Simulated scan of single mutants.
Amino acid sequence: AYIRCFDVALIPYLLNEYSRFVYPNKLNEYLIMGKPVVSTGLPEVEYFNESHGNIVSVVHNHAAFISQIQYCLDQDSDTLRAQRTAFVESNAWDKKIEAMQSLIQAKLDRKAKMREQNWQHAFLKFYRTTQRKVGIVTTAVLVVYLLVFHTSLVWVIAEPLRVVQQPVSGDVIAVLAGGIGESGQPSDAYEEKINHAVALYHQGHAKNLLFSSGATRVFNEAEVMKALAVSLGVPREAILLDEKGGGNYFSLLTLRGELKTRGWTKVLLVTSLYNGARSQLVARKNLSGVEVTIVPPDKSRFFGEQRRVDWRHLRAIIHEYAAIAYYWSKGYI
C-alpha cells in the first residue's frame, strides 16, 4: 500500500562483502507497480539490468544517486511504468520455475539420450568383442580338432609311451591283462596279448607263462587267460597265475615274489602297446637284479594302423600319462 504512494523507489545498499551476494526482493515489488528504481551498484541488480534493458537506474556514487532520483521524477511516464510491469511479469517466479524446469528437463533429456547412445555403443562393443572371442575360440577348437583327429600329432605325443624291445631268451613270459568284459569273452587287446605270449612261448623264448589279473566280474579273468593259452597248445603245468593283479605296480610286485621264489632273473613282459614306458619305469625301481624285456604285441586292433584317431585312443593315451604322473606322486617309479 505504501509503495503506491512512491514517486521513486530506492535501493540504497552499501557495497560490501555481504551485499555483493544480495538480490533485493523489493526490486520486483517496485517494478511490478511501475515505479522507477534507483539502486546502488549491487552485482545482482546490475545483472538484472543487463537482462532487462537497463530498466533500473544503477549508480556508483552519491552525486549520481541524487541526480538519478531527479531524472526519474522528471522522465517518468505511463509508457515506462507499463514497461516496468511487463519486465517484472517476465521475471516472476512462475516464469523462473518454468525456465528452471525447462533447463532440468533438457539436462535429463540429454542424459537419457547419452544413456541410450552409451547403451547402444556398449551393446555394439559387447557384440563385437563377443563375436571376436567366439571366432577365436571356434578357430582354436577347430585347429585343435584338426590337429588331434586329422594329423599324426596324437601318435607323436604317444610315442614316448611305446617301448618295444627285441625278444630274448628268458625264464618266464609275464602277461599283464587288460580285461575280458562282462560277456566273459576276451577283448581284442586281451586276445592279442595272449596270442603274442603263446607265440613267444612256441618260439622257445621261455618255458613258463605267468598271467596276472585281479579281475573277476562274471568269470575269473586269470582262469580265462589260462584256458585260452591251453587251447593254443601251452601245457597247463607251464602256466602260473596271479589272481590278485591290481595294475602294473602291484602285478610286478607279485611277479617279483615269484621270481625270487623260483630263482628266475629274466622276464619277457607282454603288455599293451602304450603301457611299455610305465611298466619299464616300475620294473627299473622295483625289480632290481632282474632283466626285464618289454615285448608288446606287434599290432593292436584297438589302436589300429594309426591312420586315424578317435576318442578312445585319446582317452587311453591321456590315461597312460596320468597314470605315470600318479605313480610318480606315490613313489612307485
Rank of each mutant, 00 (worst) to 15 (best):
E116P: 02
I333P: 01
Q101W: 04
Y127F: 08
A112P: 01
F126V: 10
V172L: 01
I55T: 09
L103I: 11
T130S: 15
Q101F: 08
E305L: 14
K35T: 12
F48H: 06
I97F: 11
T139S: 15
L14V: 09
L31M: 15
G233Y: 07
R84E: 04
G331N: 06
V290R: 09
A283K: 01
E17K: 10
H150N: 09
E223P: 02
I294N: 05
Q131C: 12
G257I: 04
I104A: 13
G178A: 12
S169T: 05
V270N: 00
S279M: 08
R278K: 02
H319P: 02
A215N: 13
P186K: 01
L73Y: 11
K330A: 10
R278Q: 03
L209C: 06
V292K: 03
Y327N: 05
A227I: 07
P43V: 03
A325Y: 08
L15Y: 05
I97G: 02
N220Q: 15
K330W: 05
P160Q: 08
S57E: 13
R20V: 03
R20Q: 14
S251M: 04
G263Q: 03
Y332D: 06
N61C: 11
R115W: 13
H60S: 15
W264S: 00
E17G: 04
K133T: 15
V198L: 07
F87D: 09
E159I: 01
H196R: 05
N49R: 07
P296T: 02
T271A: 04
L228G: 01
V148A: 05
S57L: 12
A238I: 07
E46F: 04
T129M: 13
I239F: 08
K107N: 13
F250D: 12
E192G: 04
A64G: 06
F123H: 13
L240V: 08
V37S: 07
A277G: 01
F250I: 10
V154E: 00
L176T: 02
S212W: 10
V295L: 06
P167D: 09
Q105N: 14
T129E: 13
V148C: 05
L80W: 04
S213L: 03
N28A: 15
A1V: 11
V218N: 15
L153H: 00
D242F: 07
A1K: 09
K266F: 05
Q203R: 14
W155H: 00
L314A: 09
L259C: 15
S67D: 15
W155L: 00
L210N: 00
Y127D: 12
T293K: 07
A106V: 03
I333K: 00
V56N: 04
A82R: 11
Y2A: 12
E191L: 13
R284L: 14
M33G: 09
Y2T: 05
L31Q: 08
S300N: 03
F21W: 13
Y13T: 02
T293C: 06
P160V: 10
I194L: 08
S251K: 01
Y190F: 14
V164H: 08
E237V: 07
L228M: 14
D298N: 08
A86K: 10
R301H: 10
Y2C: 06
A92Q: 09
L210S: 00
Y23L: 12
G214L: 02
Q101T: 07
I66F: 14
N16R: 03
D94R: 13
V8I: 14
Q101A: 11
F219R: 14
K226G: 05
K193N: 01
I3P: 00
G204Y: 02
D7A: 12
R128G: 01
G178V: 07
A199K: 10
I318V: 12
V38P: 05
